[in-house]
Each structure stands twice: as structure tokens, then as C-alpha cells.
């Protein structure tokens, strides 16, 4: 009786300690993003090779990125972005970013794994999500700041936006270089190869869906024909 009770309590304690450990690791990996964006060469190496990054943190950044994108379209002052709010579908906007992101990660993994890239798919995914951090850190406050600027001060807004994009692009480059242990030239070539690969994947998906719809159409018409004959 008493042993069972004590066993249960230790179990609980272990669980809670496990949870708090996970939480601590998650928080640590979130904070590590700041190190990654300021020291990309060191940061990306340790991110995957030393397991300083977590999948949970990566997911958080990706979701924040999507939210930033949507908020940017909806809440930026109309002086700088003219998005037709009445035509915007939030899920469509998110999907149109999420899908290419995932396909590019997949294409990169598929290509680099053939040419002795060291990164696994999960590594590429985590690194790419961490590379989005400058975009989030700059653009999220800029949404608020844009509502305090006038049309004439728009250059400040555009400069900040370009900084965030260039920074993120640089991080993507360095990130791919570090996780695959490639030289800069090879990384550059493989970025182009990745884009081609992504195009191939999209093509295959489209072919698959059109064939699928043809196949479904065939069976539907077969069923119709049969039901006419039987009646």
C-alpha cells in the first residue's frame, strides 16, 4: 500500500522534474536564437552539432514568422502597405509561405544528402527556422512603428524591412553552410540546385493531383455508365 503510494509520488515528481527540465531546455533554446543571429558561424554549428536548438523552439519561430507575415498585411499602416484586406484569406497567406518553406527544406535535404551534406532533414528544418528570427525580431515591432510614421518617413520603414530580409537571407546561407559542412561556393550552388529541386517537387505534386483527379473521374464515369446499364 505504502510502497505503491510512494511509487506514484516519485513517478509524479519525476514527471514534473522532466517537464521542468524540458521547459528549461526550451527556454534555453529560444534564448540561443539571439546568439545564433549575432554569431551565425559558431551559432549554427553548435545549434545542430551540439544540439543547442530544439524542434519546439524551431516550430515556435516558424509559427511566429507566419503570424508576423499575416499581422504585417493586416496591421501595418496603409501608408506603406496596401493590402486588400477584403480579399485576404489568412490561411491562404500562411499556406503560401509554409508550403514553399517546407518544400524548400525537403528539396535541400534531398539534394544535399546525395552530395555528402552532413545535415539531416530535422537539422535543416531547425536551422532554417532559426534563420527566420531576424525577420520576426525586426518586422514585428515595425508593424507597430509603421503606425507612428508618416508617408514621408517611409524610407526608414523600407530600410528596416530590407535589413531584416538581408539578415535572414545571410543566415540561411551560413546555416546551410554550417550544417552541411560545405564551402561557401558549394553552398551557393546547392541553393540554386535546391530551388530547381523544389520546382521538380511542385511539378510532381501537380502531376500527382491531376492524375488522381483523372483517375477519380474515370471511376465516377465508370460507375455512372454501369448504373445506366443496370437500370
Amino acid at each position: 500500500m505504502s510502497t505503491a503510494k510512494s511509487a506514484r509520488t516519485t513517478d509524479k515528481a519525476e514527471k514534473s522534474s522532466g517537464r521542468s527540465a524540458w521547459w528549461a531546455r526550451y527556454k534555453d533554446s529560444l534564448r540561443y536564437a539571439l546568439y545564433v543571429i549575432s554569431h551565425p558561424f559558431d551559432g549554427f554549428w553548435d545549434l545542430t552539432h551540439e544540439h543547442r536548438g530544439t524542434l519546439a523552439a524551431a516550430n515556435t519561430f516558424l509559427i511566429l514568422f507566419l503570424i508576423t507575415r499575416v499581422l504585417k498585411l493586416l496591421c501595418t499602416s496603409f501608408q506603406f502597405i496596401s493590402s486588400p484586406i477584403q480579399h485576404i484569406n489568412v490561411f491562404e497567406e500562411m499556406g503560401s509561405l509554409l508550403l514553399p518553406f517546407l518544400i524548400l527544406c525537403l528539396a535541400n535535404w534531398a539534394m544535399t544528402t546525395l552530395f555528402d551534406g552532413k545535415g539531416r532533414f530535422i537539422d535543416i528544418y531547425i536551422a532554417m527556422c532559426y534563420a527566420l528570427v531576424p525577420y520576426i525580431l525586426i518586422q514585428l515591432p515595425m508593424i507597430l512603428i509603421s503606425n507612428m510614421l508618416t508617408f514621408e518617413e517611409g524610407s526608414l520603414y523600407t530600410v528596416m524591412l530590407s535589413i531584416s530580409v538581408i539578415w535572414s537571407a545571410f543566415l540561411v546561407f551560413v546555416g546551410l553552410m554550417e550544417i552541411h559542412d560545405y564551402s561557401p561556393g558549394k553552398t551557393f550552388i546547392f541553393i540554386i540546385v535546391t530551388i530547381v529541386g523544389a520546382a521538380v517537387i511542385i511539378f510532381l505534386i501537380l502531376v500527382f493531383f491531376s492524375l488522381l483527379s483523372d483517375a477519380v473521374g474515370f471511376f465516377v464515369s465508370l460507375y455512372r455508365e454501369a448504373s445506366y446499364r443496370l437500370n
Binding site: 496603409f78 501608408q79 496596401s82 507612428m148 508618416t150 508617408f151 514621408e152
Partner: peptide, 18 residues
């Protein structure tokens, strides 16, 4: 001006308003 999507005039007014 926001309803009219007039950015220049909006900016001009907003400067004073701010």
C-alpha cells in the same frame, strides 16, 4: 483620408496630429 486611401494627405495630417 484613410477611407480615400490618400497616403500623401494622410501623412501630412498625421504629422501634425502626432
Amino acid at each position: 483620408f484613410k477611407m480615400a486611401h490618400d497616403r500623401e494627405n494622410y501623412g501630412r495630417v498625421f504629422k501634425l496630429y502626432r
